[in-house]
Design a protein around this nucleic acid. Structure first.
Lengths: 335, 335
DNA sequence: AACGTTGCCTACAACGTTGTAGAAAGCAGG
DNA sequence: CCTGCTTTCTACAACGTTGTAGGCAACGTT
């Protein structure tokens, strides 16, 4: 049922290598020979054996995308764009879930899927720069925060700038007691630190005080964490009139907690998020957010990987920045 | 940098095959030999070349999961469970996005990732039974609707029963004008047809009329479609007091449209969905829904695939059913 | 002491592909 | 007609792994 070059060769009356040449588009093949071979290929429904090809060539045509959790909407959306961008290069994407733990991420980075993939696009949560050094230098592109000038290529967005901008937007609406949800003290919290910096920058620029009591930590960035943090802020008595949540799922949780507390959004409390996930366009109210250009992030990552694969593997790591914009929606806009 | 069995063998002073035996857990290896080999493996950080292993054994240890779109929450959650279940069998999961079109699904089913994967778990939208017959019989498990007694193994849930049950729940709450959102006339709409049947069954059992005007089609099952369908129902003047949406994203869109129309949920209109996605636990209001046991669906699918891989590939197709339960939340429960 | 059995190990071939080297045939220019 | 070049094709080896067949000890049994 499944055929090999040899079967095609016998049927077409040529050598195995000639069939290989036809399959690979080698030019010096007589037109009639080529036609005979192609006919045989079609008749037998021949498909190359990718493992054998890889064994010979050292390339699989498969890249891996490693994300912490697939059912976090941001990563699911990102995965979609990466798959699409990779298809343009003829690559198949193998998607790996790391779970976000440092040990699991280290395993992925060091190559659990070794020998199966040509390269890796990796969106780490917990990984630090030293985890990456000394690893076998398989081509890898990191998404998200820079791992402190780690040894790998990077695609980032300007977290500090985006956080500053959206906080300034809240200030511009006249809000003065602006809370932040999602800070993290752990070493993993690179994104959290950068967004917190942008938040603090904006406050300072507007002459507002940075108040520790308005900054709520969140162990993870799920809806439940956002709801819990919001409840904490409300019961602590700090009475915020706006909340900057470090991602959209946190913000959706916060909306839920505000609703339960009988507070109106945006009249009593304005809410903003980060990531522009689909849910935020249909939530009640719809969610103002920072919208990173996910398609661009995915495209840049795939292109970096392609260059690394074809080019110099020891060239210094590069860092590219993807654009973002603010999406203003009901959670900040008074009707 | 990257080592082979040969390198390990030289370092340990044994034959290549002995190293292979150690790697594969063959029992007849003297403990001290095994120790020497393992030491050499560790020192060289040896990893087997999966392509070579596959070439030799005919197995890759990779299965594919094909879903229409990864950023549909239901599929993202399902993907997570499948990855987890597959890990128990030592499999890596390659995730494929089909886009949901019939032609693309046919390509996936016929083996675009040929020779790379041992088997396929496939959640088709548009595929019909005849698309599947005559395909090269790679082990495949279908999720979701039966494709009319197609030739492949299946994992389903009782769509008719679940739809009947949740509709009856609405009737039990005293609702009498129960709309349905998500019907589809296209051949792809197998799930839609089954859920509509359950809906109609429940109405009939309660002695209520089935009213065409209360059934709104939805071309896809995204939030936007749900919102549009709901707006349509509201402007048509049929004045429903409850809505059964055929999945949760439709329901979230419907909630949004009801909110925009100034109607209260559940006081004016009760809303239920299907799938139990994470969003529905935090939406405003939280969403009553049919919760299929996704972990079980994933586990059954992986087990079926495993049996098919190890056993008789020509045995008749089997169909397994996964359980579900109702999750009652705010969108139907008066405070 | 001869025998079969078991445990441990090795050599070799094969999986399907492609790079290399080179052979055969055709062609142009002398 | 020879020479050198190009076109077209083929044979062979190699990629890294594992199944098969078999060899050599060491053991227990007759």
């Amino acid at each position: 049922m499944r055929h090999r070059l040899k079967d095609v060769a016998e049927r077409a009356g040529v050598s195995v290598k000639t069939v290989s040449n036809v399959v690979n588009g080698y030019v010096h093949v007589r037109p009639d020979t080529r036609a005979r071979v192609e006919e045989a290929i079609a008749e037998l429904n021949y498909r190359p054996n990718l493992s054998a090809r890889h064994l010979r060539k050292g390339r699989t045509g498969v890249i891996a995308l490693a994300v912490p959790e697939l059912d976090i909407p941001y990563f699911a959306e990102l995965a979609r764009y990466v798959v699409t961008a990779a298809a343009d290069f003829g690559w198949t994407v193998l998607i790996d879930q790391t779970g976000g733990g440092r040990e699991q991420e280290r395993v992925v980075a060091s190559g659990i899927t070794d020998h199966l993939i040509d390269g890796l696009i990796f969106s780490p949560l917990a990984l630090t720069a030293e985890d990456l050094t000394g690893l076998d230098n398989r081509p890898m592109v990191l998404l998200g925060e820079r791992v402190d000038h780690g040894p790998a290529d990077h695609v980032v967005i300007d977290n500090v700038g985006a956080a500053r901008e959206i906080t300034s937007h809240l200030i511009g609406l006249g809000r003065r007691r602006i809370a932040a949800i999602g800070s993290q003290r752990t070493p993993e919290g690179a994104s959290a630190r950068l967004r917190l910096t942008g938040y603090a920058d904006a406050l300072r620029a507007a002459g507002l005080d940075y108040d520790e009591a308005l900054v709520a930590p969140a162990p993870a960035w799920h809806r439940a964490d956002g709801a819990a943090a919001m409840r904490g802020l409300l019961t602590s008595g700090v009475r915020p009139d706006a909340v900057f949540c470090f991602n959209d799922t946190l913000a959706l949780g916060a909306l839920r907690a505000l609703h339960e507390a009988g507070l109106r959004v945006p009249e009593d409390v304005a809410v903003v998020g980060f990531d522009d996930i689909e849910d935020g366009r249909f939530s009640i109210p719809t969610l103002t957010t920072v919208a990173p250009d996910k398609a661009q992030i995915a495209r840049l990552a795939v292109e970096l990987l392609a260059e690394r694969l074809d080019g110099d593997r020891t060239a210094p790591a590069r860092e590219l920045s993807a654009p973002y914009r603010l999406e203003l929606r009901e959670s900040t806009q008074l009707p």
